[in-house]
Design a protein around this nucleic acid. Structure first.
Length: 566
RNA sequence: GCACCCGUGGUGAAAUGGAUAUCACGACGGUCUUCGGAACCGUUAUUCCAAGUUCGAAUCUUGGCGGGUGCACCA
């Protein structure tokens, strides 16, 4: 429809002898001002030395000459906008096409035939899954799904630090208190505590520091049986605990990369390109970014002791990803604090591999903070990503107490709803800004929350179920002449997906869904859908069904499941 | 000090250079419980400062102010 109107405008301009490169066509913020609006008259009024309103009227007159369907009226408004009001036929048609495309409703072909590898989450074995990982995961998963909706083949990958000082600190802690049994989650939590303990000892005791450094070396060369035993055990069980979390969150990774594997690959590349790209300085091997771009800086790749740093491993990782997946785009999602250093690494990579340079993209996001005075979890501990998920689920479970559902059903639903609360809180904001997480609000379920969207979908689903029972089938042949605001919102979904895709900003979808839900709830409050006396019941069932499908697809793009009941 | 990100009602957010800046929470007032009230309707209040570009600026440019993050052997 959009291109149709654009062509209409273009032809009118042509016959008026006006040159227009691009035509801006948008949805007015207020539904009363039409469904589409263009500013071409204002944009060209000056060069033509005409009053914008008069020019707009001329364009409208020109367009009114030819026949066009699906448009009820075209009007000049405000300072010279031209507003298009679409016809009932158009909206009925869009409901029809939503029902026909189903799960594919909202998809586009902008990245069809191409492959993208997305790297996100990146937690470290032996350390807790913290809230930053949760945030990166929610964003990465949503972006992956947005790419899927744009036709891309997506490959999800996860990069994890299984060697380095943090591992040695955890092992040191475990050596004090011993290995323990329990579920993966329980043991991972214990190992996290051991890490904190080792980390503290490293700062306060020279003796401990030395012991940890020794363990660090032993982890690399696997020369000590006790260390090996603890390492293998701890690595395995913490990774298992992560898998449990991914399952709850709804992410499935195809590739897992580990720092231990990337280090030698990166080392080789750095050595091969020294002194051409890297150079020695104070005993270390560095890359002087400022030589190529004043906004970059110098970074150490290999320490004076010969140990590869994160930069080198990242280099190995990037090259490995390109060789393994042959992607058209390699996207990495992390918090902003990695921004500057990634730019330096990316520069080094593009000097060595010019063909990769244009195919790398780094998406950064802000930090998660807490509403004041709520820094600890329900049980009074430091909040980890995992405890946040479980707190949220527990809160939902309590709220579902009076529902007439089985215990197992309640448990499943509260998991879906609890996760939705967190994900929505993260994805409603634009990526650049920090987010304030407030558990009360994210599970309060009233307006502007994930559970609110789910609840709205559930209400719609409930009508659809009743419709089946009373035997009113969806049908769009007989629609009431008045077009509801809900319908005016529904057809815009694919455009919202495109917008989110072009900007790589999931919040556009979150914002749209909240507006859509609000329109549906108003419709719900004002209209009896299953009214056997009304000739429009069948159409309204179709409309509810179209809404349900749109909400479901939209929530999917945010990585949120739609429960059938709640 | 330099670089990057950010600054919108009391609070949290939205707004491809467009119309009266939108949504939610809160507060206040209402619907009275029909297909799920975890809902709906109404009232309330906002673009950090200054200059510039433009027919038109929350948005672009410059200069301030405020916050976050990063800048040599952590990841």
């Amino acid at each position: 429809m959009k291109t149709k109107i654009e062509n209409l405008i273009r032809e009118a301009l042509k016959s008026l002898d006006i040159q227009a490169e691009t035509i801006s066509l948008e949805h007015p913020s207020d539904l009363k001002m039409g469904d589409y609006s263009t500013n071409v008259a204002m944009a060209h009024a000056k060069t033509l030395k005409m009053n914008p309103k008069e020019l707009a009227q001329k364009i409208v007159d020109e367009m009114s000459k030819g026949p066009f369907d699906m448009v009820d009226k075209i009007e000049v408004a405000g300072p010279g906008f031209i507003n298009f009001y679409l016809s009932r036929e158009f909206f009925t048609d869009s409901v029809k096409s939503i029902l026909n495309t189903g799960e594919d409703w909202g998809k586009n072909e902008l990245y069809a035939g191409k492959r993208v590898i997305l790297d996100y989450t990146d937690p470290n074995p032996f350390k807790p899954f913290h809230i930053g990982h949760l945030m990166t995961n929610a964003i990465g998963e949503s972006i992956a799904r947005i790419f899927e909706f744009s036709g891309a083949e997506t490959i999800r990958s996860n990069y994890q630090g299984d060697v380095g000082p943090h591992v040695a600190k955890a092992i040191y802690g475990i050596m004090q208190d011993g290995m323990r049994e329990g579920t993966a989650s329980e043991v991972a939590k214990y190992i996290g505590d051991c890490y904190a303990k080792g980390s503290g000892a490293y700062e306060t005791s020279e003796q401990a520091k030395e012991a940890i450094n020794t363990i660090n070396k032993k982890v690399y060369d696997r020369s000590d049986e006790e260390v090996n035993k603890i390492y293998d055990w701890g690595r395995k069980i913490t990774l298992e605990a992560f898998e449990d979390i991914y399952k709850i969150l709804g992410t499935k990774f195809v590739h897992y990369f580990f720092e231990s594997e990337m280090a030698p690959i990166g080392m080789k590349i750095v050595n091969e390109n020294t002194p051409k790209i890297f150079e020695e300085s104070e005993g270390a091997v560095v890359f002087k970014g400022e030589k190529y771009d004043p906004k970059l800086h110098t970074r150490v790749f290999i320490t004076s002791a010969g140990i590869p740093l994160y930069e080198t491993k990242e280099l190995g990782l990037t090259v490995t990803k390109f060789e393994k997946a042959r992607p058209d785009l390699s996207l990495v999602v992390t918090a902003v604090e990695q921004g500057d250093y990634m730019r330096v690494v990316a520069k080094a990579i593009s000097l060595i591999y010019p063909e990769y340079g244009s195919k790398m993209k780094h998406v950064t996001h802000g930090m998660m903070r807490f509403a004041s005075g709520k820094m600890s979890s329900r049980k009074g501990n430091v909040i980890t990503g995992e405890s946040m998920i479980h707190d949220s689920i527990d809160t939902v479970l309590e709220k579902m107490n009076d529902r007439e559902l089985g215990d197992e059903e309640k448990r499943k639903i509260s998991e879906i709803v609890g996760v939705a609360g967190i994900k929505y809180s993260i994805l409603r904001s634009s990526l650049g800004s920090d987010i304030i997480y407030d558990q009360e609000k994210s599970t309060s379920f009233e307006g502007d929350s994930g559970p609110y969207l789910q609840y709205t979908a559930v209400r719609a689903n409930s009508i659809l179920e009743k419709a089946r029972i009373v035997n009113i089938a969806a049908d769009y042949t007989n629609a009431p002449s008045d077009v509801t605001d809900l319908e005016k919102k529904l057809y815009q979904f694919p455009e919202v997906v495109v917008h989110a895709y072009t900007e790589l900003e999931p919040h556009h979808i979150a914002t749209y869904l909240t507006e859509l839900a609000s329109q549906f709830n108003s419709f719900y409050a004002n209209t009896v859908v299953l009214d056997e006396a009304s000739e429009y019941s069948s159409y309204r069932v179709a409309l509810v069904s179209a809404f349900y499908q749109t909400m479901k697809n939209g929530l999917y793009l945010l990585g949120i499941q739609t429960p059938e009941k709640m």
